[in-house]
């Protein structure tokens, strides 16, 4: 026994490597392969500017995908992230245009994201409706609210000061990338180091067993949806900061990219399995591919096809390499 405790305690490095699972290593190899292919085909793909571009283009999807990962791990799904973002965006934007102080406008946007997630979570956890149907319903409802609120028109003319917040950069990296990296770190800590992370994995892995073991099922699920809503709101702030305007139709089909990134990263739609590192890598894979194809002047139809194929390829590799229990 002493043998075992000493071993594990004495090797934090080995510990870290073990945490970086085989599945994540697979996703990383996938990313390396894609980078290598585009590096060979596209001149200037590896230019520092372009690499930063890829990260920036991936950041919004990564942000959503992190929340999506937590929800998927809990055994659910959140289809309503795009409309949640849109609702948060138009409300924050119209407050900003009306001259409300930035912190208040941003906080209201975040609160709205949390509220959207709360509604999803309550319907799933307390009412007992299926996550897919619940968030399909709120997907339409939240979108409708955003459209009704704005009358279908974009909110234009956001103050330059606000835009500067999200368009700034730090250590040569766009602030958006740094924000999302920080969110990823927090998500990683939540999943690996907090009871909530264990609860998420247990609820998604076997809800009945988790219940008997005293896991607060409803609270865990609701928290997952609220985090997803909050991150959708964060993505919305980043986007309207970049664009200087908020459209009620913003975030259309965002949920699909977020699910794709999580799935490429190893999250199982059956619940109980998923990885923060994998999801980030998955989002960068999607971003790098789109960036590369765009630089190659490939028609967007083919880009869509490539996205589809990469998801299917990731799932096939997953299936083939998964060892027998």
């Amino acid at each position: 026994m002493t043998d075992i405790t000493e071993h594990t305690a004495a090797r934090p490095q080995a510990d870290f490597l073990r945490r970086f699972s085989m599945r994540d290593a697979g996703t990383l190899i996938g990313l390396v392969v894609i980078l290598a292919v585009f590096g060979a085909l596209v001149p200037g793909f590896f230019a520092e500017r372009n690499l930063i571009n890829i990260l920036q283009q991936s950041s919004i999807n990564a942000c959503l995908a992190l929340g999506m990962t937590l929800v998927i791990i809990s055994g659910g799904i959140d289809l309503s992230v795009g409309p949640t973002a849109a609702l948060s965006a138009v409300i924050s934007a119209s407050m900003l245009v009306a001259g409300v102080p930035f912190p208040l406008a941003i906080a209201t946007g975040f609160a709205l994201g949390l509220a959207c997630g709360l509604v999803n979570g309550i319907l799933v956890a307390y009412v007992g409706l299926q996550p897919f149907i619940v968030t399909l319903g709120t997907l339409s409802s939240y979108r409708a609210l955003a459209l009704i609120y704005t009358g279908g028109n974009p909110v234009l003319g956001l103050p330059a000061g606000f835009r500067a917040i999200f368009n700034g950069s730090l250590f040569g990296l766009p602030l958006a990338v740094i924000i999302v990296a920080a969110v990823a770190l927090i998500a990683w800590i939540i999943l690996k180091k907090s009871p909530f992370g264990e609860y998420l994995l247990a609820v998604g892995g076997n809800e009945e067993a988790a219940y008997i073991a005293g896991v607060p099922i409803a609270r865990t699920k609701i928290a997952a949806y609220m985090i997803s809503g909050l991150l959708a709101a964060l993505a919305a702030q980043i986007l309207i900061g970049r664009l200087g305007a908020a459209e009620p139709i913003l975030g259309n089909l965002w949920e699909l990219d977020a699910i794709a990134a999580a799935a490429i990263g190893g999250a199982s739609l059956m619940g109980g399995k998923g990885s923060v590192i994998g999801t980030i890598l998955g989002a960068v894979i999607l971003g790098a591919m789109r960036n590369g194809l765009t630089l190659m002047n490939v028609q967007s139809f083919y880009q869509l096809l490539a996205t589809g194929l990469i998801i299917l390829a990731a799932m096939l590799i997953d299936r083939v390499t998964r060892g027998r229990g």
Binding site: L201, A202, G205, N206, E208, A209, A210, I212, G272, K273
Partner: peptide, 9 residues
């Protein structure tokens, strides 16, 4: 299997 263990953990 149903009420005791969380199989993947």
């Amino acid at each position: 299997k149903r009420e005791g263990i969380v199989p993947l953990r």
